[in-house]
Amino acid sequence: MIATAMSNGAKADAKPAAEHDIKITGRDVRVFYGDKEALHGVDVDLRDREVTSLIGPSGCGKSTYLRCLNRMNDTIAGCRVTGSLMLDGKDIYDKSIDVVQLRARVGMVFQKPNPFPKSIYENVAYGPRIHGIASSKADFDAIVENSLRKAGLWNEAKDRLDQPGTGLSGGQQQRLCIARAIAVSPEVILMDEPCSALDPIATATIEELIDELRENFAIVIVTHSMQQAARVSQKTAFFHLGNLVEFGETRQIFTNPVDTRTQAYITGRIG
């Protein structure tokens, strides 16, 4: 109830509305693991060229919600999703949607940097290769360079493209994973606690990067760090015990939360 109210109230933004077309609309999204309901009817609208952060204590359902957006939950046995999730007006869970193509449009970056045990070049080129986006060597080279540049890794990696991606430092690996995700030109990038395994400096680099990527993509980030949510995101959704408690402008959530639970969480009393 509150969530819907908040999402309506979130329209007061400085930038013109046209720039912020709704990318993904979620209505009454429920997730079941077997008989257990893990997410109790969530309504969140994700806007293009905007960072939305999902916060909340562990086990609150924020990662579950994130994984609904590119159907990574499909791989979990006994997991069922109801409600409607529309990407550009098309139901993500419609039978006609090919999950492989969906994931090309909705990329993902994981909690632990997980580059393939292949070369840096191959890591980035893998997505375009399996989707047939590029064919010639020159195309691949261009995509790899472009993606690494966007991920802020080109200068560090250009001389060692043939070396294994697993040999990079943790922060570099995570940027490589971001480059790999953007190499297939997705529209939405999901990030599941992308900085939780990184040191503060690498975290700052990734946060800057997220801010730059916002120019081109809709970004959804799950984070345990409220400071991070406050720094990088425009919209924030607070989850608690499988419920969406509050969703709105980040500034408003952190300065003037409507719900007492939100206030308790951001001041460190629950979580």
Binding site: N70, M72, T75, V100, Q101, L102, R103, A104, G107, M108, V109, F110, K112, N114, P115, F116, P117, Y126, G127, I130, H131, C177, R180, A181, A183, V184
Partner: peptide
Amino acid sequence: PPSIREAALGVGASRMQVITHHVLPL
């Protein structure tokens, strides 16, 4: 490691591609 499968699924590899490109070689 499941993280490798997730990574491949995340960039849109099909289940078969995950197996032939990543799981079996490893």
